[in-house]
C-alpha cells in the first residue's frame, strides 16, 4: 500500500461519507456544505485517475458555480433554519426493491466488465487531447451543446426581465 492508495482511500472516504450526510442531515445549509466535500472528494479521485482537466472543471462548475448558487438560494430564503426537511422513511418496500435492483445492476456491470489496468508511470496532461477531440471528432456535438447553453442563457435572461 503506497501513498497513492492511502490518498485514494482518503478521498473515497470523504466522498462517500459526505454524500451519506448530504441525504441524512436535517439542516439544509449543512447538506449544501456536505455537498462541497463530496465534490471535492470526486475531484480528488479524478486527479488520481489522471483526468486533470475534468477534475479542474469539476471544481469550477460544481464548487464555484452550482454549489454557490445553491447556497445563495438557501440563504436568500426566509426562515431557513425552521424549514422541516423530511428525512424519514416512507414506502420502504418499493424503495428496497429499487435499491436492490440498482445495486445488483451496478455490481453485475462492475464484476463483468474487463477493466483495463495498465501500469503507467505518471499520467500525462489531458487538456490538449480533449481539445483536439472536441474540435475534430465531436465538433457537431460540441457546437450543439454550445447552442443549447446559449438558449438556456437567453431564456433565463428573458424570464428575469418579466
Amino acid at each position: 500500500m503506497n501513498i497513492y492508495d492511502i490518498v485514494f482511500y482518503l478521498f473515497a472516504a470523504i466522498t462517500v461519507l459526505s454524500a451519506f450526510f448530504v441525504v441524512t442531515t436535517r439542516n439544509i445549509v449543512y447538506s449544501a456544505y456536505y455537498l462541497l466535500f463530496t465534490f471535492f472528494g470526486v475531484a480528488g479521485i479524478y486527479v488520481l485517475l489522471g483526468a486533470d482537466f475534468i477534475a479542474m472543471v469539476q471544481l469550477i462548475v460544481y464548487v464555484g458555480g452550482i454549489l454557490i448558487l445553491i447556497l445563495f438560494g438557501v440563504m436568500l430564503t426566509n426562515k431557513i433554519t425552521s424549514v422541516e426537511i423530511k428525512t424519514g422513511s416512507v414506502q420502504v418496500v418499493p424503495a428496497a426493491v429499487g435499491v436492490a435492483l440498482l445495486a445488483g445492476i451496478l455490481m453485475a456491470s462492475m464484476v463483468d466488465t474487463k477493466w483495463r489496468s495498465v501500469e503507467t508511470a505518471m499520467p500525462s496532461a489531458t487538456t490538449q487531447g480533449i481539445g483536439m477531440l472536441l474540435i475534430q471528432q465531436y465538433a457537431i456535438v460540441f457546437e450543439l451543446l454550445g447552442i443549447l447553453l446559449l438558449i438556456a442563457l437567453i431564456g433565463a435572461a428573458s424570464m428575469a426581465r418579466k
Binding site: 445549509v29 462541497l36 482537466f53 454557490i68 440563504m75 496532461a125
Partner: peptide, 25 residues
C-alpha cells in the same frame, strides 16, 4: 508544476467563496 496552473488557481477560489458564505451565515 501542474499543467493546468491558471485554471487550478481559478478553481481554488471557489473554496474561498464557499468559506466566506459559511462565515457569514
Amino acid at each position: 508544476n501542474i499543467d493546468l496552473g491558471v485554471i487550478f488557481i481559478i478553481a481554488a477560489s471557489g473554496f474561498v467563496v464557499a468559506g466566506i458564505l459559511m462565515a457569514g451565515w
